[in-house]
Amino acid sequence: MGKTALVIGGTRFIGRHTVSDLLDHEYDVTIFNRGNHDNPFADDDRVTHIAGDRTDRSALASAAESVTPDVVIDCVAYQPEDVAAAVDVFDAVDGYVYISSGAAYGAEIIPKRENRTPLRPCSDEQAIDDSGETYGNRKAEGDRIIFEAAKSGVNAMAVRPCIVYGPYDYTERLDYWIDRVANYDRIIVPGDGQNIWHRGYAGDVASALRIVAEEGEPGEAYNVGDQELVTIEEMVDLIADALKTEIEVVAAGERELAAGGLAPTDFILYREYPHILSTSKLAALGWESTSLSEAMADTVAEHRESDRNGSEYDPGREAEERVLAILDTL
């Protein structure tokens, strides 16, 4: 009898990659979601879809009873109460994995390590909020629920990704940079170009979720991200290599950007203080990340087939041109 997996979510970005990884490792997969998005696995007889709202406990329990999964991957637990319901409903599975976040960490330490770097607090008000400002707080509270459930014998674990990129990324964060490199030969990067915001390839996050479900220790959290980190300037160079084009990367500091009416934070994937997660704990389970060149090539190839361009993050090319003109006079 084959292994069975229930993926809560499963049709978008990380969930989509997770289903594909599970299928590649001979799991029979059931997707549980509301069905509000196109199902890329609709024609795959190895994948079953159950429609339901994960915030409806009875619907979640019904899915658990119908599937009796060996492992559960929870891609869409955004409120602590979602995690609390899941660890109760799935208290008998071999592995329940909650997707947390590197944003759960509450201290700026390099690198951020599981069991050592403090987590964010979460007030009662934050626990029921749904804004971006409380995202990390709510993810941290979900982690604490995982830890407590494991003490009661539930095989529950958390995986904390950093910024995730890869094919089918509906956030379009990296799409902005790919679009810039594809259309211009001079690209502004903010600051000195050496900013580091740890990123992780979606396919590697997917394999981490499966490996933690199979090999992880209940009550533990595992960071995931590229094992080789690159600066924002090096990231742009990787994109150019994947596009087989040549570009000039121009670093612009706060003063130069201000002359064009811009600030470093106007550029997506810029973070003043480095955000770096240790991945050694996950690697000890046998996990490895994909080479950066391969990961970026896959990401760029899918981008070119999509209609995404990251335009919502565009600081304005005219403003950038003003900054470039100023830098050319220095």
Rank of each mutant, 00 (worst) to 15 (best):
P80G: 13
Y201T: 04
E256G: 00
M157E: 07
E148M: 01
M1D: 13
G191N: 05
K151Q: 02
N137A: 12
L229C: 10
A84I: 05
H37V: 15
L60D: 14
T329L: 07
D28P: 08
Y98P: 12
Y222M: 03
Y98W: 14
A202H: 06
A150S: 14
H275F: 15
R138T: 07
G253T: 00
I109T: 14
L23P: 00
I14H: 06
D129T: 02
D185W: 03
A42S: 04
I232N: 06
F13P: 04
G200V: 05
M235A: 04
P40C: 05
G216E: 07
I163N: 03
C75P: 08
T329M: 04
G102R: 09
L22F: 02
A325S: 15
A325R: 15
P80C: 11
R16L: 14
L292Y: 01
N115P: 00
D237L: 04
A127N: 06
W287I: 09
S293F: 01
A84F: 11
S293L: 01
D192R: 10
Q79T: 05
G286Y: 13
V97D: 02
A263E: 15
R54S: 15
T134F: 08
G225Y: 02
R186D: 06
E233M: 09
A5P: 12
N115H: 11
Y313Q: 00
D179H: 09
D94N: 13
S100Q: 08
N39A: 11
G9Y: 12
E318R: 10
L23S: 07
S100H: 05
N183P: 03
Y98D: 11
I128F: 03
A103W: 14
D175E: 11
R57G: 13
R304L: 15
D169P: 07
A319Q: 12
D24R: 10
D226S: 12
S278Q: 01
D307G: 09
A103V: 13
F90K: 03
S291L: 02
T30I: 08
W177E: 03
Y165E: 05
E233A: 14
V89I: 14
M1R: 10
P111R: 06
